[in-house]
Design a protein around this nucleic acid. Sequence first.
DNA 1: GGTGAAACGTAGGCCGT
DNA 2: ACGGCCTACGTTTCACC
Lengths: 150, 150
Amino acid sequence: MDHIDPIDTRILRVLQSDARISNQALAGRVGLSPSATLRRVQALERSGAIQGYRAVLSPAARGTGFTAYVAVGLNDHTKAGQEGFERGVAGAPQVRECHNITGTVEYLLRVEAADLAAYKHFHTEVLGVLPQVRSLQTYVVMGSPKDDRA
Amino acid sequence: MDHIDPIDTRILRVLQSDARISNQALAGRVGLSPSATLRRVQALERSGAIQGYRAVLSPAARGTGFTAYVAVGLNDHTKAGQEGFERGVAGAPQVRECHNITGTVEYLLRVEAADLAAYKHFHTEVLGVLPQVRSLQTYVVMGSPKDDRA
DNA sequence: GGTGAAACGTAGGCCGT
DNA sequence: ACGGCCTACGTTTCACC
């Protein structure tokens, strides 16, 4: 990853909020010619500073009417146990994020489902069935006053 | 928001994983002509199904070397107390997400900082200073085996 | 880093279904 | 209403300075 100067920082900030801006408009915003801007963007992509470009979809477009964070405790803390659990959630489309955290439990999941009934089904039939899982604590999201993903 | 048919669903899936694909290439992928595809994308933007397009930056490009979830309990559950807290975190760039959750505490934050020292400073000098805050519990993220944002 | 020009993509009018 | 065709216009991209 090459060094990131102030102009790169401005490019990243603009692309973070509008990934589909034209290269010409981006060039105008950062004060460079289009070709120099394009070369910088390509370098940032190659270096991995820009990992990709994504459309942000509304919850309705994703089919999500219910979101929860779930704290998951495991039976054993072995590598095999963790890997088994991670494989289990990797295949579940409802699990949007799986974080390995410090504290009294091992994992924090973000789960999205169509509605409460769909979540209940996922909770008991998918998560509850994984042999590594010892405890599940659900925190229903009532709102997100701040969310950088949106 | 108009109704979303199978072709719209395919368009959304493609744009979700590559927001900068050209309209022509997108048309090829969904099996429509470029003009019909463009009209659908514009309709999806207007209807709010597509909320925007964002570049995904690496943690290094964001200056993040330390991530934690923080469970925050408030002193009072009044509307004014919640709004005061939400205003407090809205201005903190380290707080990337703030979710209002059910359970024993009121909020779950995702916090990103340069390193542990920067986090400690944020924890005691920013969060700890908000008058509405009663309790703070930090869960350090050691890894994210699954993260749809990446 | 900037310039210029060829290649490429966009976007909207128009017509058929 | 919705898709395909056409085309003027704008943008990207690259060799060269």
